[in-house]
Design a protein around this nucleic acid. Structure first.
Lengths: 197, 197, 197, 197
DNA sequence: GATGAATGAGTTTTCATTCAT
DNA sequence: CATGAATGAAAACTCATTCAT
């Protein structure tokens, strides 16, 4: 036998290929409309082969969520490192959130689109994963100096909602994600009637 | 003869029963994970009977969207009638939007949760239906007096995103929908640092 | 109430409309691929209404066969009346058979195309109906003066097969059915090598 | 360990088993009255397993036609090889045609019984397959020396019709297929009145 | 006579999963 | 590691038929 086979699949990135195919299919078709066969085809293998890497379809979804949240957490944490000003920190968290969401591939978008449902097999786990990420924003808002009666939870959910809805309307010609994020923060901070009594 | 016969089908509301069952299942399981069998069971009839009222599952989804959007449009239009002040009008649109979304049953929530995908059977139609409703908000924002460089489209999408994300976190003990809406408007109008330079 | 209603269906020909629609659908789609709903639609009525005229789909098929065979028997019998010469009688039977088969509507063609199968509900009945018609040809062949060892049954089946296959290849530009029939008879009588030893 | 394991699927002939079961069911019940469930049962497997080998019921029909026509073409071609005399060649083609049709199993008979309809899924393809076979007969007739005004197409269709109708009346006690074929050729060649003026 | 509404058994097809090789 | 082959349950949908009105 010669030294190398023509199609030799580099050993470790086949799992990754499956994961990417799954994220893409979950995002475009939804979890249950995405079929293992199609995912396998996208990943360039047979259905049965997926099961060597992942024990079930539900585990694939979990892995996509984990990967998506791992990426966003890493990115946000890195963006915050070294920054002190509370408003600047919030702004950079949002900039990163928007950039990863809109230009960072299918993983994080799948997390935000294929939101867990109470009827999902792994519901509690997925919710816990996401809550863990969103806790970063709880901390960032707590660090702001705000009027005493301001409901910080509502503000956080308002901001996250505004951002997470963006893949629904964002098109390639739109303003850059970072600018959209800055706009949201600006509106949030000053309001629409900055000079009002 | 006893008071009621088993086969008397209370003629007209069976179609409505199907529609309600479908909205509920679509909301709780997602469109493709919801089975016609379960919808039929919820509606108290046989699977085949659904097809007398709706030609396909996709049409059922379309009908749910139509009904949800018909309801919210009616409610918002009515809430706006007689009001003149632009900010008051926007606030009432949001109050109504939140009340119908959070306390108005499954229809409108399904519209906002089961967002159309490009791969969906009736995608363009569903998007057009929702755009038609959201156009109300375009008008409301156009009526506001805002700084000249303010991007009203972004503001509209920010506000809608904040509201439409709410079913994801809203729990029964939370503040009333109307209050949440008022809070959103307040933040949007004044910002979080009302006295800032 | 005014003197006449706009849609008043002339009382007796609705049964006939059903029968014609059935023949057409049976012929073009085959018995089991033809649906009662489609037949009803072609006939301009609701499915349920068919059951006033015919107790079941199988009975519809039987009725189509009966009507088709009634028509061809009437036509052939009439064509033979007054003719004495055995070969002329056979020729006219064939001319009529071909004309009704190729230009006589869907009934007789359905009889010959949707041939009864042993698995059909009404198999024996349908076969008996057709045998009854084909018996005419047995008689016509018996009347011919032929070489003693000639197997008249085989000749009859050869001739009927040749004719009954014709709807499969006959197209509107082809020779007239009567001419095709005359050709068949000519070949049958003289052979392809008329002057051979 | 006992002699055979229940799950050992004798690897390659399962596809063939499906094909045979399909031919048999299509022949006895007709294409649309034959159910995949019954075909699977005849083949000794689950319905779903059929779809590993054939993508749809329509493809199964196509495969049956292909196999039937492949068989008859092979048989006829072989029967003609080495023969020169035009009439002898035609006779042997007919002998083979009749033998395969009446004693050659369900495949070719299905081709000739389950004649393609314009409404069939794969209509044009099936017609093309059969035309390809029947072209052999066009060639055989062209090779005969016949009166100048003889319409060879009509003669070909007369002969094919006579043969293809035979499964409808052939019963096990009948004359051997080869003899029936010889009879047809004899009648075709000499006619019924060989000594006539 | 006709129909609107419903039924239940049936259809083809899809799918996640398994497992011997 | 990967796959070819199979499975059985479930999917959406169709259909002949029924029956009260």
């Amino acid at each position: 036998m010669p030294a190398s086979e023509p199609l030799a699949p580099r050993p470790e990135n086949r799992r990754q290929r499956v994961l990417e195919a799954a994220a893409s299919r979950f995002l475009r078709h939804g979890y249950s409309a995405a079929s293992m066969r199609d995912i396998a085809a996208d990943a360039g293998m047979q259905v049965g082969s997926i099961y060597y890497h992942f024990p079930s379809k539900a585990d694939l979804l979990t892995a996509v969520h984990q990967e998506g949240l791992r990426r966003i957490k890493t990115a946000v944490t890195e963006a915050l490192s070294g920054r002190q000003d509370p408003w600047e920190r919030l702004e950079w968290a949002c900039i990163t959130h928007m950039e990863v969401l809109l230009h960072g591939g299918d993983f994080f978008q799948t997390v935000m689109r294929e939101l867990p449902r109470e009827t999902d097999p792994d519901w509690k786990h997925l919710v816990a994963l996401r809550d863990d990420y969103e806790a970063i924003f709880t901390g960032l808002l707590d660090a702001l100096t705000l009027p005493a009666d301001m409901d910080r939870r509502k503000v956080r959910l308002m901001l996250l909602g505004a951002m997470n809805y963006s893949p629904m309307w964002y098109r390639s010609g739109d303003d850059a994600p970072a600018n959209i994020a800055r706009n949201f923060i600006e509106v949030l901070r000053r309001g629409l009637e900055p000079g009002a009594p």
